[in-house]
Simulated scan of single mutants.
Amino acid sequence: MSQHPSDPYGTPQATPPALSLPRRDLREAVRGPVTPPATALTSQPAQQSLELAQRYELLNRLGMPTVGNEDFDELARDMAERAGFLYGFVNLGLEKQTFVGLHQPPADSGYVIVGRTMSRDHGWCPEVMTRKKALPLHDVHASPRFSGNAVVDAVGIRSYFGAPLIHESGVVLGTVCVIDPERRPLSEARRIRDITIHGGAQAMDLIAHQPVRQAVPPPPTREP
């Protein structure tokens, strides 16, 4: 599969070398509190702005970094390999969708190589966060509601399975998901869905057991 110039994952024009992320304590990735830009809060509907601010505040309180990390990369790889998919993600729903965990084909494989962020308007993960339950799409073209998506054209995705990351407080932090350019038999849907649900539980266990930092209040919103 060749690269597509309109890839919503932020694919560069030239195939980048594979990244090797060093294993480290997640605390080392934190460089001060993470706060959403003011434009991210004011440009969204009120409910979305509130949820985004709550998400950032909780991540600060948990001491959860918002950069790629090898522990989450390994989780993404484990989900993808168990499902037999090419791509796996641990995705935080921030100003942009942010892949703190990422597994994908090798840089010289001929498949699209994705970046660590993607617009919040693309893909099916925003739908998973809204519905707060797993979304199994064994064939995205089987449902008109989900077949019209920028990711389908840019990466050629035919199957998607995702599950939400929900903190015990009720705050939805993001998702885990696997995607692939091949559709899957309907008979496989339950097994793959369960892989993502289990992966989501593992991701939340990693997130919840990070050292607790002092809570940082979300930035004040401005009146439109």
Score class of each variant (00 low, 15 high):
residue 195 I to G: 05
residue 5 P to N: 08
residue 128 V to Q: 06
residue 21 L to P: 10
residue 30 V to T: 11
residue 169 S to Y: 11
residue 197 I to K: 06
residue 200 G to W: 05
residue 136 P to E: 06
residue 22 P to N: 03
residue 15 T to V: 15
residue 196 T to F: 11
residue 203 A to L: 05
residue 102 L to I: 09
residue 22 P to F: 09
residue 44 Q to S: 12
residue 113 I to D: 05
residue 151 V to A: 01
residue 29 A to L: 15
residue 142 A to G: 09
residue 157 I to P: 05
residue 175 T to P: 03
residue 204 M to E: 04
residue 213 R to C: 14
residue 165 L to C: 06
residue 168 E to I: 12
residue 38 A to Q: 13
residue 43 S to T: 14
residue 165 L to M: 07
residue 100 V to G: 01
residue 23 R to E: 15
residue 195 I to T: 02
residue 191 R to F: 07
residue 209 H to G: 07
residue 202 Q to S: 10
residue 203 A to V: 02
residue 63 G to E: 01
residue 149 N to W: 02
residue 139 D to I: 04
residue 200 G to E: 09
residue 132 K to P: 04
residue 29 A to N: 09
residue 218 P to W: 00
residue 180 D to K: 03
residue 105 P to V: 08
residue 38 A to C: 00
residue 178 V to S: 07
residue 180 D to M: 07
residue 72 F to P: 01
residue 102 L to P: 02
residue 78 D to N: 13
residue 116 R to E: 11
residue 175 T to R: 04
residue 152 V to K: 04
residue 18 A to Q: 15
residue 83 A to E: 00
residue 125 C to N: 00
residue 127 E to Y: 13
residue 152 V to C: 04
residue 10 G to Q: 09
residue 161 F to M: 01
residue 67 V to C: 08
residue 141 H to E: 13
residue 75 L to Q: 01
residue 141 H to F: 13
residue 122 H to R: 13
residue 173 L to M: 08
residue 213 R to M: 14
residue 96 K to Q: 13
residue 189 A to D: 04
residue 129 M to I: 15
residue 173 L to Q: 02
residue 210 Q to F: 11
residue 118 M to T: 10
residue 49 S to E: 05
residue 16 P to S: 03
residue 14 A to Y: 14
residue 49 S to T: 03
residue 189 A to I: 10
residue 211 P to M: 07
residue 95 E to Q: 14
residue 202 Q to W: 06
residue 37 P to V: 03
residue 153 D to Q: 10
residue 224 P to W: 03
residue 209 H to Y: 09
residue 11 T to E: 07
residue 130 T to G: 13
residue 122 H to G: 13
residue 17 P to W: 13
residue 131 R to N: 11
residue 212 V to Y: 10
residue 160 Y to K: 01
residue 181 P to G: 06
residue 5 P to D: 09
residue 152 V to M: 02
residue 168 E to T: 15
residue 36 P to A: 08
residue 38 A to P: 07
residue 129 M to Q: 14
residue 215 A to W: 09
residue 98 T to N: 04
residue 1 M to Q: 15
residue 97 Q to I: 03
residue 66 T to V: 07
residue 146 F to K: 00
residue 101 G to S: 07
residue 186 L to K: 14
residue 156 G to E: 00
residue 219 P to L: 01
residue 166 I to Y: 05
residue 48 Q to W: 11
residue 116 R to V: 12
residue 183 R to V: 09
residue 25 D to L: 07
residue 169 S to G: 08
residue 189 A to L: 09
